[in-house]
C-alpha cells in the first residue's frame, strides 16, 4: 500500500505541472504584462519607466520559459510571490491568514452533509416502495432545482434576520468562530442535501437485492439491522467515491458562502482577486485547489482499501 501511495504522489507531479502550464498559457494567450502593469499601477498615466520597473519587480520581463519555470517552481515550493494588485502584498501571508476559516467551513459542512445525507438515504430506503419514498425522491428533485444562491439568500434572511438565531455575517477568530460559521454550514448542508441523498438512496437500493441481504433476512435479522449494518457497509464504497468527487465542489461553497457572509477565508480572497483582476492570486488559488483535489483522490483510493477488503492497491 505504501508503494502505491508513493506512486500516486509521484504521478501527481506531472498533473500539477500540467495545471501550471494550462494556467500559464491561458494567461499569456490573452493579456500582455504591459496591460497588467497599466491596470495595476496606481499612477493615472504611468511612464514607460514605471511600467518597466513594475514588470521587473513582478518578473514579467524575463523570457517566457524562464518565467514558467520560475512560477511553477514557486508554486511547488509554496512561494507564491507577490500579488499583481496595488501594493503587491505577499500572497502566502494572506493565505496563511485565511486558510483556517475556509477549512472550518469546508470540513464541518463536509462531515455534517455526509452524516445527514447518509442517514436520510437509509431512512428513505427503509420505506422503499411506499408513498413516503416517492414523496421524498420528488422533494429531492425539487430541492435540486433551486440555485445555491437562493439557499444562501433565504438562509441568511430567515435564520439571520427574521429569527435572529445566528449572526447575519462576519467572523471572529478562536472559539467564537463556531458561532459565525454555523449559518454557512447549515446553508451548505441544506443546499447539498438533495442530490447526494438521492444518489445514496440508489446505492443502497442496489445493495438491497443482493444475495447476502436475503441470507441475513433468512437468518432472522431485523430489517433495520440488515439495512444499517450489513447494507451500509457494502454501500460505503460508492459513497466514498461520491464524497470525494464532492471535494472540488467544496471550493464553490467556500467562494459563495465566504463572500456572502463576509468571512475572511480563501474564497473571499479569490473574489477580491476577481474584482482586482489579480491573476497571480488566481493562479495560486488554482494550484492549491488542484493540490487539495489530488490529495483527495489519493485518499479515496486508500479509503477504498480500508472499507473493502476485496480491493487490493497495486
Amino acid at each position: 500500500m505504501i508503494g502505491y501511495i508513493i506512486r500516486r504522489v509521484l504521478y501527481a507531479v506531472p498533473i500539477l505541472i500540467g495545471v501550471c502550464l494550462f494556467t500559464f498559457v491561458l494567461f499569456y494567450l490573452t493579456t500582455s504584462p504591459q496591460d497588467l502593469a497599466r491596470r495595476n499601477l496606481s499612477a493615472k498615466n504611468p511612464t514607460p519607466q514605471q511600467i518597466k520597473d513594475w514588470e521587473h519587480t513582478h518578473g514579467y520581463d524575463q523570457p517566457k520559459w524562464k518565467q514558467f519555470v520560475r512560477t511553477t517552481e514557486g508554486l511547488f515550493l509554496f512561494r507564491f510571490g507577490k500579488s499583481d494588485g496595488v501594493g503587491g502584498q505577499r500572497i502566502i501571508t494572506r493565505i496563511k491568514q485565511s486558510w483556517l476559516p475556509s477549512f472550518e467551513i469546508a470540513s464541518l459542512s463536509f462531515i455534517a452533509s455526509l452524516l445527514v445525507n447518509l442517514t436520510a438515504a437509509l431512512v428513505i430506503a427503509y420505506f422503499r416502495g411506499t408513498y413516503f419514498d416517492s414523496a421524498a425522491t420528488t422533494l429531492c428533485v425539487i430541492m435540486m432545482s433551486i440555485t445555491y444562491l437562493l439557499y444562501i439568500i433565504v438562509g441568511q434572511y430567515t435564520l439571520g434576520r427574521l429569527m435572529r438565531i445566528t449572526p447575519v455575517g462576519g467572523y471572529l477568530p478562536g472559539w467564537q468562530s463556531l458561532h459565525f460559521i454555523m449559518l454557512p454550514v447549515v446553508v451548505a448542508v441544506v443546499a447539498g442535501f438533495a442530490s447526494d441523498t438521492r444518489l445514496y438512496r440508489t446505492f443502497i437500493l442496489d445493495e438491497i437485492n443482493q444475495d447476502y441481504v436475503r441470507t441475513a433476512r433468512a437468518k432472522g435479522i431485523s430489517e433495520s439491522r440488515v439495512l444499517f449494518i450489513h447494507v451500509l457497509k457494502n454501500a460505503a464504497v460508492p459513497v466514498i467515491t461520491n464524497t470525494v468527487s464532492a471535494i472540488p465542489g467544496l471550493f464553490l461553497g467556500s467562494v459563495l458562502l465566504e463572500n456572502f457572509f463576509n468571512i475572511p477565508g480563501l474564497g473571499n480572497y479569490l473574489v477580491d482577486a476577481i474584482n482586482n483582476q489579480d491573476f497571480a492570486v488566481v493562479r495560486a488559488n488554482v494550484f492549491i485547489g488542484a493540490l487539495v483535489t489530488i490529495i483527495g483522490f489519493i485518499m479515496t483510493d486508500v479509503g477504498y482499501a480500508l472499507a473493502d477488503p476485496r480491493v487490493r492497491l497495486e
Partner: peptide
C-alpha cells in the same frame, strides 16, 4: 485528469478573467 483536478469554479473564474 489535469482539467478534472482543478475545481471547476476556479477554472471558470480564471477563464472568464482572461
Amino acid at each position: 485528469t489535469v482539467v478534472a483536478s482543478v475545481p471547476s469554479i476556479l477554472l471558470q473564474i480564471a477563464l472568464l478573467l482572461v
